[in-house]
């Protein structure tokens, strides 16, 4: 019996210290997924807490044949999908500003660019538009995009997490990508950002 299984069994007997060890093993993964879904440090923190509380009370329903991490991700996505949308404006963060999280202030590690500052600035602007556009999609679409594109999960794992067939995962992902693209184009137009394709065309016209 592996260590995680033992901890689960102990937690089932209301051993909270065993459950705390489980949290310590999985919290980073749950928190990071929560952060990508909520796009907010504080909301991710709340969501992660709820996930483990829910997990504790649902442990009986966990079947050991599934991976515990996948099971937790499933709870994470479900809880997030079922949380009512807040009325407040979505949390849009600047990609190079420190994320305000009190003492745990963190900097996003932006992928290294080619060193061209103009290119880097453009990347940031475009990434900001994509993040904003993503936040405006339906929660189902956001979830598939986050799981597949940002977190890089396989279709099989996504189907387990989202509790639907492979076909549904794929078709939902395709629709989500289409909607996201349209949203990105719309936001780019509104903010005056010149998208790659249109820029190329414009250069051709100028020549």
């Amino acid at each position: 019996m592996d260590a995680v299984k033992q901890l689960i069994e102990k937690s089932l007997e209301n051993d909270l210290s065993a459950f705390e060890q489980l949290i310590n093993i999985y919290q980073s993964r749950v928190f990071n997924l929560g952060y990508q879904l909520t796009n907010s440090y504080a909301d991710a923190q709340d969501l992660t807490q709820e996930v483990f509380i829910k997990a504790y009370y649902s442990l009986k329903g966990f079947r050991n044949e599934a991976d515990f991490g996948t099971w937790l991700r499933k709870i994470t996505v479900n809880l997030w999908l079922n949380t009512k949308r807040k009325r407040s404006i979505p949390n849009v963060i600047s990609l190079d500003e420190p994320i305000s999280a009190g003492e745990n202030e963190v900097y996003r590690d932006l992928a290294a660019t080619d060193g061209d500052p103009e290119q880097s600035l453009e990347n940031k602007e475009f990434n900001g538009i994509v993040r904003k556009a993503l936040g405006e999609l339906s929660r189902e679409y956001q979830a598939v995009i986050v799981l597949r594109e940002i977190e890089g999960y396989s279709y099989e794992e996504m189907s387990l997490i989202m509790n639907c067939s492979l076909g549904t995962v794929k078709s939902r992902l395709n629709r989500a990508r289409q909607v996201l693209k349209q949203q990105v184009i719309k936001l780019a137009k509104e903010s005056g950002y010149v998208l790659p394709g249109t820029r190329k065309n414009r250069v051709v016209e100028e020549v």
């Binding site: 909270l16 459950f19 705390e20 949290i23 310590n24 919290q27 980073s28 928190f31 990071n32 952060y35 990508q36 440090y41 991710a44 923190q45 992660t48 807490q49 483990f52 509380i53 504790y56 994320i99 999280a101 003492e103 745990n104 963190v106 996003r108 590690d109 932006l110 992928a111 990347n123 475009f126 990434n127 994509v130 993040r131 993503l134 995009i145 594109e149 940002i150 977190e151 890089g152 990508r177 996201l180 693209k181 990105v184 184009i185 998208l195 790659p196 394709g197 190329k200």
Partner: peptide, 29 residues
């Protein structure tokens, strides 16, 4: 195709680990 490629790239760049807040497990417990 360029749009989709650029959006995918932007999304991949968002995947950077964020530090888990201290004391999270203690709060849950």
């Amino acid at each position: 195709a360029e749009y989709f490629g650029a959006i995918s790239k932007a999304l991949r760049e968002m995947n950077s680990p964020v530090k888990t807040p201290d004391g999270l497990s203690a709060q849950v417990i």
